[in-house]
Computed example of a mutant assay.
Amino acid sequence: MDTTLFAFTVETGKERWRTTLEGPGPAPTLGGGRLVVATENGLEAYDAASGEHSWTIESPSAGIFDSPPVIADETVYIYGGAGVSAFALADGSLQWRVPIGLTSNSAPAVVDDTLYVAGDDTYLRALSTDDGSERWRQKTTAHITCNVAVAEETVYAGSESGTVLACDRADGTKRWQYRLPTEEKRQQTPQTIATDGARVYVTTDDVLYALDSKTGQPCWTIDTHRGRYSSTIAVGDGTLFVPTGESDSTAASSAGTVYDAANGTRLRGFATDIPYGFDGGPSVAGGAVYTNGRAALRRYSGADTGAVE
């Protein structure tokens, strides 16, 4: 099934351009004036202003690009084909590739000159952004099932055994690990992780957890929207934005909830007219929340009502 990629003007919401992609894939990434997205055919880049196609990298012979791309310092990093690759943002030329082993849907993270990646081989790794050489690795308890998050001097990841792991960013030393409790005799598995430096926010299918970033001990939990917490979450300005299906408007077919990041208090809902829910996002930037659905990208007010702008 094809997917349409849209670009809208932030101030007005007016459509600027659209293009058709081959099949659904991970969420696109914006950086350096280009929008980079993984599709069934490979990795594609578009001019963010005009929508003009810039370049395409065919899918690796060993499979497809599995994770969302990450852009830093004019370079695109992505997991796929049992390895990690770095491409020049300008023209898509290969800078380096490191075979790691198994595939992964886990989005990597870049801080300074280090790329942090996690995969189905149970290892969390730190690689040099210059050439992909390994700086350290830390074995986890099982396959890593969610994205990697970094704040200050700590790297966070979660495995399918239900363990959330915190490692020192410099050398990979384990700082703490926390095993999520079982719910109705079923082990809760981390689906996505976000952090603001004070707390680590972890979603499973049924529960939203906030853990102390220094100790890993629970600060608060929410299970109001069981079965709806597996999508990406975002944190910014002391608030947490979570797609939950809840809305302050009964007419909305899919929406999310805004929580106080410190104590988990519900602040408000935000509504959308997207009929199939959220496929990517949310992300927080410039006082607004951005998310995309099966057929559109939407911008919401981040500070007050949460209404579609």
Rank of each mutant, 00 (worst) to 15 (best):
T3V: 14
T4W: 13
L5Q: 10
T9Y: 05
V10W: 04
T12A: 02
W17V: 07
L21T: 11
P26I: 05
P28S: 01
T29S: 12
L30S: 01
R34D: 11
L35R: 06
V36P: 08
E44S: 14
G51L: 02
W55H: 08
E58Y: 06
A62C: 04
F65N: 00
P68N: 11
T75K: 12
G80C: 04
A86E: 13
L94S: 12
V98M: 10
G101R: 10
T103S: 14
N105A: 13
S106R: 06
V110C: 02
V111Q: 15
D112H: 07
D113A: 10
D120Q: 14
R125E: 04
A126W: 07
L127P: 02
D130A: 15
G132I: 05
W136E: 07
K139Q: 15
C167I: 07
P181I: 08
K185Q: 10
Q188V: 01
R199V: 01
R199A: 14
R199Q: 14
T203C: 12
A210C: 01
D223W: 11
R226D: 03
G227T: 15
S231Y: 10
V235K: 07
D237T: 01
G238V: 01
L240C: 03
F241D: 00
P243H: 06
S247Q: 02
S254E: 03
A262D: 10
P275L: 09
P282N: 06
A285H: 15
G306M: 03
